[in-house]
Measured scan of single mutants.
Amino acid sequence: ENVVSAPMPGKVLRVLVRVGDRVRVGQGLLVLEAMKMENEIPSPRDGVVKRILVKEGEIVDTGQPLIELG
């Protein structure tokens, strides 16, 4: 699984990683606000951040690609 998608609609509050960062399974990639709750979106696997597909403040839909892992 190379693309991390939004599990719910919401607003991207914070991106916690940068392109080139090594991440571990379960590590927070970004914080999504949904229904006034902050939800940290975890990495599904170990890898390297290849691309960040959203910006802070952006509104996303369920299933929208957020981050690509390499």
Rank of each mutant, 00 (worst) to 15 (best):
V25I: 09
R51G: 15
V25K: 09
D61W: 05
Q27D: 03
P65K: 01
D61R: 04
I67E: 08
K36Y: 08
R24W: 03
V12D: 00
R22S: 12
E40C: 01
V25N: 15
R45Q: 15
S43H: 03
P42H: 10
P44C: 01
P44S: 15
Q27E: 13
I59K: 09
G57C: 01
P65A: 06
G20Q: 12
L32Y: 12
R22V: 06
L69R: 01
N39E: 05
P44K: 11
Q64Y: 06
G57Y: 12
A34F: 12
L16S: 13
V60N: 03
V4M: 11
V23W: 03
V48Y: 06
G26P: 09
L29W: 06
G10S: 09
G26D: 12
K55Y: 06
G57V: 07
K50A: 15
P9E: 04
V3K: 01
I41L: 05
V4I: 09
P44W: 15
V3Q: 11
S43N: 05
G70V: 11
P7K: 13
I41C: 00
D21Y: 00
G63P: 12
E40K: 03
G70R: 03
V19A: 13
L53T: 09
V54Q: 08
G10K: 06
E33S: 08
V19G: 11
V48E: 14
V23A: 05
E58F: 04
G10L: 14
I41F: 10
G28P: 11
M35D: 03
E56L: 06
V4W: 01
E56G: 08
K36T: 12
V19F: 06
G26W: 11
P7R: 03
T62E: 07
V48W: 03
G26Q: 08
V48F: 03
D46M: 04
V54R: 05
S5K: 03
E40Y: 13
G20K: 11
Q64M: 11
E38I: 12
G26R: 07
V54A: 09
V49Q: 03
A6N: 06
G20D: 14
S43P: 05
R14T: 06
S5G: 12
K55M: 04
V3I: 06
L16E: 15
R14V: 06
M37E: 08
P7A: 10
I59F: 10
L16P: 13
E58M: 05
P65V: 06
V12C: 01
G20I: 09
G10W: 08
P65I: 14
N39M: 13
L16D: 11
P9Q: 13
G57W: 06
D21Q: 04
P9Y: 09
E38K: 07
I41Q: 12
V23P: 13
D46F: 02
V12G: 01
R18L: 11
E58K: 04
V31R: 09
P42T: 11
V54I: 13
K55W: 08
V49S: 06
L53A: 14
G47D: 15
E33T: 10
R24H: 02
T62L: 02
T62A: 06
N2C: 00
S5M: 13
G47S: 08
D46E: 07
G47I: 02
V17S: 09
P65Q: 09
P9C: 01
